[in-house]
């Protein structure tokens, strides 16, 4: 199952709720303001670092670039994909849940 999160973890509990309900083996894709959840060394990094032990976490490249975030600012293990990668993730998983 693919979970998308589009909210900054500094503003909303969406990422926390998503990670609490997502099962091991899930794919998590951070989009829009959700990409801030992928930042290394932030107050919320530990949450994503823990998730990476049992899930794959992706961040949408165009949204990182739009916000001035280079890939080296991401938590190690967070993979960057484009819109084509988003489509591939949505195809590869049996369903998509958007944590709006």
């Amino acid at each position: 199952m693919l979970h998308t999160v589009n909210k900054s973890p500094f503003e909303s509990s969406s990422l926390r709720t998503c990670l609490a309900l997502a099962r091991a083996g899930s794919d998590i894709l951070l989009i829009e303001d959700g990409v801030y959840g992928g930042l290394a060394g932030s107050a919320h990094s530990t949450m994503v670092e823990d998730a990476l032990k049992s899930m794959k976490v992706y961040a949408l490249g165009p949204d990182l670039k739009a916000r001035g975030l280079a890939e080296d600012r991401l938590i190690p293990g967070v993979q960057v994909v484009g819109y084509d990668g988003f489509v591939d993730l949505a195809s590869a998983n049996d369903k998509v849940q958007s944590w709006l």
Binding site: M1, A20, R23, Q97, S98, W99
Partner: peptide
């Protein structure tokens, strides 16, 4: 419980938010 909710999510075909 949250764990039960997690299982329920996995069972679905279509999820609307």
């Amino acid at each position: 419980s949250r764990a039960e909710m997690s299982d329920l999510l996995e069972e679905q075909d279509v999820i609307l938010n």
